[in-house]
Amino acid sequence: MAIGGCAVLLGVPARAERVWPVIDLPAHAQSWSLGDALEVGGVPMRIRGFLSDRPRDEVARSLRQGLGRPMVESRVGDKLILGRADGGFYLTVQLESVAGGTRAWVAVSDLESAARYRERAQSHAQAWLQRLPADSRILSQTASRDGQRLSSQLVYSNGAGAALNGRALTALMQEDGLQLQHEAAADAAPHVAPDGRVMWFKGAGKEATAVIGRLPDGRASVVLNTVTALEAMP
């Protein structure tokens, strides 16, 4: 599995009862984390990136020792991928040579929880559809947690116009405790379709931004981003 910087910005809070395996990084690595917990395609994940001033083959030798056996190795273009199953988890390391050394992404995927929580995710999507305008289709639904901030994104489409979607979204946000603060039409938001709009909402401990546009097939698209302070959640 290849890991990309954009592809992994998706997720939900980790399940605290699970004990996650840890991949030991080389001592010389400069690492960073992409949030406390992520979810990609319904699979809970923990992902770290790191840079090393050592050559890729040297870094790979160190990581092979830490991962243990049995291990799967593959190459995707100029990237080296190391992988190993560990109980209900799967460990993946992607390495590539860069100027001055090696860049890597290290991921731990909770496959067991992914299967267990798939039904819950489907139920959550159905709950959204019951609140959205008729003919709505959910295109993607993601979330990530970083410290005490929970960020979520909902992308959906329907055959309604921008005005109807705006009114429906305002009512929906009010039900969730957020009030419309500001709204800008397309002429003030150049990246939005001619009949689109951008809306900003705010509530106690949370805020949201919605971009209403139009897809090539003529259907309206809505991208709703919400940020909630976890201490404000019931």
Rank of each mutant, 00 (worst) to 15 (best):
D24A: 15
G68C: 10
V8C: 04
E175M: 07
S123M: 07
P216N: 09
R167N: 11
S33V: 15
A204M: 06
G203C: 06
Q126G: 04
L111D: 00
V106H: 02
D135V: 03
P55V: 10
V8N: 05
D86Y: 05
M45E: 11
L63D: 03
K206G: 04
G42S: 10
L215C: 08
A163I: 09
G83I: 06
Q153V: 08
G213K: 02
E39I: 00
E119V: 10
N225G: 03
K79A: 12
G35P: 10
M233R: 13
S109H: 08
L82W: 07
E183D: 04
A60W: 07
L80F: 05
S136G: 08
N225Y: 00
V93S: 05
P194E: 03
A2T: 13
Q94F: 07
S109C: 06
G196F: 00
V22C: 07
G4E: 12
A210L: 04
A210W: 00
Q122R: 14
L180G: 06
G77V: 12
E175W: 02
A204P: 04
E39V: 01
E73L: 13
L38G: 05
V222M: 00
D36V: 03
G4P: 01
T209R: 13
E175F: 02
A184D: 11
S62P: 00
P133C: 08
K206R: 15
N165S: 09
E58M: 08
L63T: 13
G159M: 09
L215M: 13
S109G: 06
D57R: 14
T92P: 00
V198G: 01
G68A: 11
D36M: 09
Q126M: 04
V12H: 07
R120V: 10
N225V: 13
A171E: 15
L224A: 02
Q181L: 15
F50I: 13
V12P: 00
Y90Q: 15
S140Y: 11
M233F: 06
